[in-house]
Design a binder for these strands. Structure first.
Length: 173
DNA sequence: CGCCAGATTGACT
DNA sequence: GTCAATCTGGCGG
């Protein structure tokens, strides 16, 4: 897992993030959780993307591959990984995690940030060389299902939500 | 500076 | 199933 991973198309990154383990170090404790649900977001041509607006979120989506993008909606923090390539604004939203060594609800984008203690403090930090949050390599050969994205009012024609089949920790079946 | 929509959640009928 | 709390970013709706 290195920087070039986040220089691929958002859909590919969203698919391949499934099965990766997100590690969050708090003090001397490491909370580990497996990524089981993601969504891909594109730039200008994506009506649901924050890159359409001309503010800080768009700018963040143009930062280095592996940059964390954390933004608030309805009093919840949502975690994204930026995967810019060739100046394109793209990101992948993490929608659900399977807790591996702790108890806590992670079956929704707002819930998982609460459980993993991720907030605006992490906005614009980079995943690589980070001492508080990082990713471990993915499992292979997962069975992946796809659907339209959840909660967006204007979606693309393409199904851009990906999740591990039969996993009970996804936000919706 | 005020207004509003929104990649949500939880409580309630 | 419905609905409102809650707050941030973007923009002048």
């Amino acid at each position: 897992m290195d920087k070039s991973f986040f220089m691929q198309d958002a859909e590919k990154v969203a698919r391949e993030l499934l099965g990766c383990v997100l590690v969050r170090k708090i003090g001397n404790r490491e909370k580990k959780a497996r990524i089981v649900e993601t969504e891909a977001y594109y730039g200008e041509r994506d009506p649901a993307s924050r890159a359409r607006q001309n503010g800080d979120l768009r700018k963040t989506m143009l930062m280095k591959p592996g940059t964390l993008l954390v933004y608030g909606v309805h009093n919840n923090w949502l975690l994204n990984f930026v995967n810019s390539r060739e100046g394109k604004a793209e990101a992948v939203l993490i929608r659900a995690l399977e807790p591996l060594n702790f108890e806590g609800k992670c079956n929704g984008p707002g819930l998982l940030t609460k459980s993993m203690l991720i907030d605006k403090r992490f906005h614009k930090q980079n995943l690589f060389g980070n001492k508080e949050i990082w990713l471990k390599k993915r499992e292979k050969d997962l069975v992946i299902e796809r659907s339209f994205r959840i909660g967006v009012s204007k979606d693309l024609k393409k199904k851009l939500r990906f999740y591990i089949k039969n996993n009970e920790f996804v936000s919706r079946k």
